[in-house]
Simulated assay, not measured.
Amino acid sequence: MRAVVIDGKAVAAELRSDVRAEAQKLSELGWSPRLVSVSVGDTAAAELYVRNQQKQAESAGVQFEARSYPAETSLEQLIGILQGLNHDPRVNGIIIQRPLPEHIPVKALQKAVHPLKDVEGMHPASIGNIVYNDLALGPCTAVASVEILKTLPLQMEGLNVTVIGHSEIVGKPIAFLMMGLGATVTVCHHMTRSVAMHSRAADAVFVAVGKPGLVTGDMIKPGAAVIDIGINRVETPDGPRTVGDADFDSCAEVAGWITPVPGGVGPVTVATLMKNAVLATRMQMDHYRDSYARTDV
């Protein structure tokens, strides 16, 4: 039987509905969630992402402002800009668009965003909290991938999971998130001797390495779930296409469930960003209340 194709757009729509309801509650309390997107230099590569984020934000009841700065802007200036946003109570979340100019290290900017406004979940504190199974504002792609798996009729406790790819913002967080749910996790990377040996034993396979068609049907256990996080542009006789890291056709013949590319993890990632926006807003509201509440009454 061919795999069930997971509809990421449907999962995202349900998530946005919950976000919209939460955003409305916060607005009634005087805390309307507001995101600020920061782009530097040639923004053409990021324009599609920014437009999509703005559209999704409006759909979720989250205010969105896009700011662009010249490529010549220095690291010091950008850190100053981020510090200003950190101290602005009207701003609840900060998004740093990539790519950045070569002289701007992305990690330096990620560290400059206050953890309470780190809606992308990229600050070292946000990543580190996952190790303690304390998921506040987690990295969006990793959280979205795990949320998709949780929609399937699978028992998370004791589930055998293989994660192919061990990046700091996707592969490693997925591994820790799944361990937090009680799964048994194997992480594969470029030095793993036999990726197929591990993936064939898994009830669920996450793949995020940026290599089109890396995972094929003969690497998948019959009935397993395949969560394909890769996004690659490839040339075909019919023109350029966007594909994932899994060979969809061969994997779909073996797997029980599979995410398409596009239309799988991507929409849920953006919806998770909006979820983080309202969560960050509530955390900031609570922080201000606890810090400035009167104690003499």
Score class of each variant (00 low, 15 high):
residue 184 T to K: 08
residue 172 K to Q: 14
residue 197 M to L: 11
residue 163 V to S: 08
residue 169 I to H: 13
residue 197 M to A: 14
residue 171 G to C: 11
residue 208 A to S: 14
residue 210 G to L: 08
residue 173 P to Y: 04
residue 174 I to E: 04
residue 165 G to P: 07
residue 210 G to C: 11
residue 169 I to S: 15
residue 199 S to L: 07
residue 184 T to P: 04
residue 212 P to T: 04
residue 165 G to S: 13
residue 195 V to L: 12
residue 185 V to T: 01
residue 175 A to W: 03
residue 187 V to I: 12
residue 193 R to D: 15
residue 204 A to E: 07
residue 192 T to L: 06
residue 172 K to S: 10
residue 211 K to R: 14
residue 207 V to Q: 02
residue 210 G to Q: 09
residue 198 H to M: 13
residue 195 V to I: 15
residue 193 R to V: 13
residue 189 H to Q: 05
residue 201 A to V: 01
residue 196 A to D: 15
residue 181 L to Q: 14
residue 198 H to F: 11
residue 176 F to Y: 13
residue 184 T to L: 09
residue 214 L to N: 09
residue 191 M to P: 00
residue 207 V to A: 06
residue 188 C to R: 00
residue 194 S to W: 02
residue 212 P to K: 09
residue 189 H to L: 03
residue 206 F to V: 11
residue 192 T to Q: 07
residue 181 L to P: 04
residue 194 S to F: 07
residue 191 M to V: 07
residue 212 P to W: 06
residue 209 V to W: 00
residue 204 A to C: 12
residue 174 I to A: 06
residue 185 V to P: 05
residue 166 H to C: 13
residue 164 I to V: 15
residue 180 G to M: 11
residue 179 M to Y: 01
residue 195 V to S: 05
residue 192 T to C: 12
residue 199 S to Y: 02
residue 199 S to H: 03
